[in-house]
Simulated scan of single mutants.
Amino acid sequence: MKHCKLNANIVPLSNIIRVDRNGKLICTYPSLILKKPGLYCFWWINKDDTVREILKSSNREVTVLGTKGSPQNITWDWNLSLEFVPLYIGKTTNLSQRMGQHLMLNTWSWYWYQNQFMKNFFKKTLLRREKLTTCQFRCGFEHLFKYYGDPMKKEILLNNIGFSYVIEKNFVNRFYEEDFQIGKHKPWFNIDSER
């Protein structure tokens, strides 16, 4: 099996999402292409020193459950100097639908229950089981920028997050390619509690 180049065609979210006059975010990506199965990645775009500083000063410390439920403190500090920092890699049978589930574009903000949501997400409680990985990108994004207000978070999302995808129709190839790409790129938000 030949491995795909997930970082070959990274598109800033500002190219595929627009803000309507009421402030709602609307995805404008061609749904015809994205209703196909494949792999995808959300990226932080390190386009200049100012943007690098935003990421470096974000809330990059997180606690997840390790072996036998022991808390593991992690600082998302690897790949900081790359032009594109991988944040989350996944596979799906419908790229358009999965992108919407991750972004939850018109759910601003989670901040009012941020602490409870993050606690549950990373500690495998009932809410974690309900949400699972369908919104893992959004959860990680909210954690990184939890000290920012909604308008600033929207700006950061649109201008500094990129998206890439590769169409892969074969289920078995998607399964193993996702594992390979996660191991290769080490995306921050793919780290989860151990079972």
Rank of each mutant, 00 (worst) to 15 (best):
L6P: 10
N7C: 04
A8N: 11
V11T: 14
I17G: 07
R18E: 14
I26W: 01
T28M: 04
P30C: 01
P30L: 13
L32R: 04
L32W: 06
I33D: 15
I33M: 10
K35R: 06
P37C: 10
G38D: 06
L39F: 15
Y40P: 01
W43E: 03
W44L: 05
V51L: 08
L55N: 05
S57Q: 13
N59S: 14
T63L: 00
K68T: 00
I74T: 05
W76K: 03
D77K: 07
E83S: 12
F84L: 07
V85K: 03
K91A: 10
T93A: 12
L95A: 03
Q101E: 14
H102N: 12
M104K: 09
L105P: 08
N115M: 08
N120K: 02
T125N: 15
T125K: 00
R128S: 12
R129V: 02
Q136N: 08
Q136Y: 02
G140Q: 01
E142F: 07
H143Q: 10
L144N: 03
F145Y: 11
E155Q: 11
I156S: 11
I161P: 00
E168I: 15
F171D: 11
Y176F: 11
E177G: 11
E177I: 04
Q181D: 07
G183F: 07
H185G: 00
S193W: 03
E194W: 04
R195W: 01
